[in-house]
Design a protein around this nucleic acid. Sequence first.
DNA 1: ATTTTAAAAGAGAGTTATTCTCAATAAGAC
DNA 2: GTCTTATTGAGAATAACTCTCTTTTAAAAT
Lengths: 163, 163
Amino acid sequence: MIVINDLNWVMSMSFYTADSLKAELHERGWRLTPQREVILNIFQNLAAGKHLSAEELCELLHTEGHDISLSTIYRTVKLMARMGILRELELAEDHKHYEINQPYHHHHHLICVKCNQTIEFKNESVLKIGDKTSKKEGYHLLDCQLTIHAVCPSCQRSIVSAN
Amino acid sequence: MIVINDLNWVMSMSFYTADSLKAELHERGWRLTPQREVILNIFQNLAAGKHLSAEELCELLHTEGHDISLSTIYRTVKLMARMGILRELELAEDHKHYEINQPYHHHHHLICVKCNQTIEFKNESVLKIGDKTSKKEGYHLLDCQLTIHAVCPSCQRSIVSAN
DNA sequence: ATTTTAAAAGAGAGTTATTCTCAATAAGAC
DNA sequence: GTCTTATTGAGAATAACTCTCTTTTAAAAT
């Protein structure tokens, strides 16, 4: 059973080069800037399943010698999520994380609601459900995520106050 | 195929009475307050699939003659989400929504990333995946949500700027 | 190449959902 | 009834994110 080929067409191409990103931006009357290219590169070179917050991305860019403003980082990351290039994840309580959106490495998250420890897992049928559902409603699919909220073994043992 | 019975045991009981809520709170050394009882009631009497933001809940409480502070509302809603009584939803960009967590009416959300229009849909296999995955990792399941990010038909036609 | 024009970047102020603090209150145990 | 301590209420504090506005620059037009 070749699932990967079956799913490959589901979402828009995710192995963006500077050129393919440029083409897609131009389609909408937008521009390819050095900042956008650098940020795309960061996410493409991240280990599979690794995600970054806006703040973490800013620091990483800085250590690599790229001083891109926080405003631009927030704008770019949101833009790329809306294009389907990045996935916007709600892993922590108070801020978002972003990761590259690749059907090949499509995965989901099991999150402890108490300590936020996160486990990644794969499930081939989820993307199919997402594809079927969005098609049925005439929506253009960007991403689908199964998020499981649970209590991890360690937190099941600990007693915390309600406040 | 009796799916409902199959799934019923998956998550902790959701038809809470004041007494069962009290019992579960006491188990953890917590207390049943009039505020918590009223908020539970609000969510239980909401139409199936209806969800509220903290602000909306505050207004609804007010119109019903209950003046519960915003602090308490935020605390209670988070507490109940961590107990598995409520589901915490990320439907809008900047605030959360809450709804009662009932296996019988378990559903998921298809969201337009541009206008936030949301469509609910059901899928029986998602809860099974969530149950299997959390069991495998030794986690105690509270909720699992399949969130589909997409562009709705109307927004596919409109052209917006990147900023 | 040079000019043009509008998108995008940068800087920092502004917004707002949510959390925190702390004194006052009250649930539940004895 | 008394005691302990969880919880509430009020408002201040926090912080993630957005907005505004000027400057810069991508890329089309000349």
